[in-house]
Simulated scan of single mutants.
Amino acid sequence: MKSNNGSPVLIKKHHLEDWIGRIYTTFCVSLLVIVIVSMMYFVASKGLTTFIKDGVNVGDFLFGTKWDPNGDNPVFGALPFIVGSFATSLLAALIASPLSICAALFMNEIVPSWGKRLLQPVIELLAGIPSVVYGFVGLSVIVPLFRDVFPGQGIGIAAGSLVLSVMILPTITSIASDALSSLPKGLKESSYALGATRWQTIYSVIIPTVMPSLLTGVVLGMARAFGEALAVQMVIGNAPHVPRSLFESASTLTSVITLNMGNTVMGSVQNNALWSMALALMVMTFIFVIVVRLLERRHQL
Rank of each mutant, 00 (worst) to 15 (best):
I82Y: 02
V292I: 07
P98I: 11
I11A: 10
A159L: 09
L253T: 04
A179Q: 11
K53F: 01
V83F: 04
F42Y: 14
F76I: 06
A159T: 13
V235H: 03
P151Q: 09
M167A: 12
V205L: 07
I290D: 03
F76D: 02
T209F: 02
S45G: 03
M266R: 12
M167V: 12
L183C: 10
I95Y: 12
I257E: 06
T285F: 11
R298F: 11
P208A: 06
I202H: 03
S89Q: 11
W19E: 05
A96S: 15
E189Y: 07
W67Q: 06
L301F: 05
N271F: 13
A239K: 14
Q200D: 11
K12I: 06
I287S: 09
I34G: 05
M40E: 02
W199I: 12
L295I: 05
Y203C: 13
S89Y: 09
T88M: 10
S204F: 04
L274G: 08
T65R: 10
L215F: 13
A104Q: 09
N5R: 09
I142R: 05
I95V: 15
S204D: 03
S7N: 07
G186H: 08
P240Q: 10
L79K: 14
P212S: 10
L253R: 05
G138L: 12
R117Q: 13
D178S: 15
S255C: 10
F61R: 08
I157N: 04
L62N: 01
V269R: 15
S97E: 00
S3Y: 00
G186C: 07
A223Y: 05
A273T: 06
R147P: 00
